[in-house]
Nucleic acid binder design. Sequence first.
DNA 1: TGTGAAAAGGCGCAAAC
DNA 2: GTTTGCGCCTTTTCACA
Lengths: 155, 155
Amino acid sequence: MQNPLGPIDRKILRLLQHNGDLTAAEVAEKVELSQSPCWRRIHRMQEDGLIERKVALLNPKLLGLSMTVFVNIKLSAHGRSNLEEFEQAIVGYPEVLECYTMAGGSDYLLKVVAKDIAGYERFLRDQLLQRPHVQEAHSNIAMSEVKRTTELPLD
Amino acid sequence: MQNPLGPIDRKILRLLQHNGDLTAAEVAEKVELSQSPCWRRIHRMQEDGLIERKVALLNPKLLGLSMTVFVNIKLSAHGRSNLEEFEQAIVGYPEVLECYTMAGGSDYLLKVVAKDIAGYERFLRDQLLQRPHVQEAHSNIAMSEVKRTTELPLD
DNA sequence: TGTGAAAAGGCGCAAAC
DNA sequence: GTTTGCGCCTTTTCACA
């Protein structure tokens, strides 16, 4: 892997993380390069894992997923196996989009989506709170979305 | 727009939000359909906005973005224009990936990425805290990532 | 690294059934 | 929804500066 990312590569990445449908030729045009080297750069960055994959982004509202909730979880037992078991379960829940271990007050922060309050409560009551060693779960409900992007800063 | 999403469409979406490189033919094969109707379904869902767009997902670690911070913001003045001005600024910051208005304690929740503590502090001190009417900013630092996906639940 | 060209096959898209 | 087909375009490679 060839690390120090040049300005051209940055530009390519910026384009691609905004529109994954762009072909090598289209990208080449926008970065003022010819096809081949542009294609090679893209290809290399994919192999390096810098470009992880391409995905289709869906519209949550149109799918009826109008709720986003951030949940702070605290466990009552912090043995290695307890943590691992909890984390594995989390990965398996499709309604949990993100999960981080946190410094400070709570052990985990989860980002959860649901259709509505009822749907969220069902997930909370029947799934999350049923897990062993879950001591606290503080739900913070998002009322509206100001910004949501997958584009990382490239400066 | 043709609303009640059938099980085949769901399956298509599930595939596409996992791998956006799949061609209509490949999707068709996996959902046991022939090319054309599959292509038409995908095309329709794009026009309907259900499939918003395709993007390349980059690896934050390899870009040196090893920090994720969730920031709770409280404003001191909640006039319409203050809120709008703040939100516009937020949208303009590339290091802010997500921002929601929250029910409860704080006004906004931001998800911010940075290279390291120093980089984050610079953003906090020089950008966020410099904005008018920002009263409080509580930073919650993510230590490790258990799960991170853009795939929405489709059940 | 860059440029230009070229082969081959795949893909989008539409028509007819 | 199916099968068929056309033609463009994309990807991928090579020789060369």
